[in-house]
Design a protein around this nucleic acid. Structure first.
Lengths: 166, 166
DNA sequence: TATCATGCAACATTTAAAGTTACATGAAAG
DNA sequence: CTTTCATGTAACTTTAAATGTTGCATGATA
């Protein structure tokens, strides 16, 4: 099963948007994520609808942060993405009349729901500002903001295929 | 993202195998699971290799339980299935040079690993016999040994620089 | 008005899982 | 010992969800 990296991707670009407070285009963001501009717009559309970012058209346009990073949690962002599934296992519910199946489902459900609750509790406890603080703590030798060139240097385009980075 | 129901399916048929101690054919099992006999064999192959079930060929053949249900946990079964992913979200790890990405990943990883640890702890705490007992009791009361509060206590949110446990 | 950017619908590609076919192996019944 | 039934497994097809892509409309700015 393939992991869903959207939350990770979105957090990544949000932090860059906070660092660099000029609009970032879908094209630039897609280079950071080794993805496609339309995919970026599709993904960020939910955040725009939730009022977390703003998108501006035309010359000098792009994506801008539009919230207080201290007041937005990872949970808010997860919700803005449409609350995708957090747990990858489920239960078959083909025959509710089968007591064996019902018993299995009850046991699995309890574990699954609690793991989900743990993740959600953690997500609620971490704000964008927290992540930004962690970032700056790790950046102690560097002073000031990163330039866009700095950033793109750290997000090179994939040379021939795959094994690139972001 | 589509949930993986193999653990649920396998538990279901294992309990039926325990109930009814005559061999069940892949064909019969596939009917229970609304699936295909070859898929059943594929899935149960791991359990056979792990010594949890036995398969017999020829007339009167099929699948038989081959373990002590009290000594086999859901974790053992999950492992026998090849330890499929439990958490459906991940992180992009394309560029370790990007400090922003590293920060995001650290935060997500901690939450993900702890949720995974919770699920595994639960799975270790539930045996096939527990499920069977729950089934015979008509309800699975015995199945939740740990409460969510217990687990959250063991997985505190790492606000300053938390290190996790378990 | 030319250009740059997003918005979005529609289609194509990718990928992992499930489903399916085909045939070999082995066990029991006749 | 031959037939029948069952698993073992490789190879192929189908399916479903996500990503990627194209094309065009809309709006903002120079």
């Amino acid at each position: 099963m393939k992991a869903d990296n959207r939350l990770s991707s979105v957090l990544h670009v949000l932090l860059h948007m906070i660092e660099l407070d000029e609009p970032l285009t879908s094209d630039e963001l897609s280079q950071m994520l080794t993805s496609h501009p339309v995919v970026v717009r599709r993904t960020l559309a939910g955040l725009r609808d939730a009022g977390l970012v703003r998108s501006e058209k035309g010359h000098g346009g792009g994506w801008v942060i539009d919230c207080d990073p201290a007041k937005v949690s990872l949970y808010d962002i997860h919700q803005a993405l449409g609350s995708p599934a957090l747990i990858s296992i489920g239960h078959r519910n083909h025959n509710p009349a089968c007591l064996v199946e019902a018993t299995v489902n009850a046991a699995l459900n309890q574990a699954i729901e609690d793991a989900e609750a743990l993740l959600i509790a953690r997500f609620k406890a971490i704000s964008l500002a927290d992540l930004g603080a962690g970032f700056h703590a790790g950046l102690s030798e560097r002073v000031g903001h990163l330039t866009l060139e700095d950033m793109l240097k750290r997000h090179p385009a994939p040379s021939p295929k795959g094994t690139s980075d972001v």
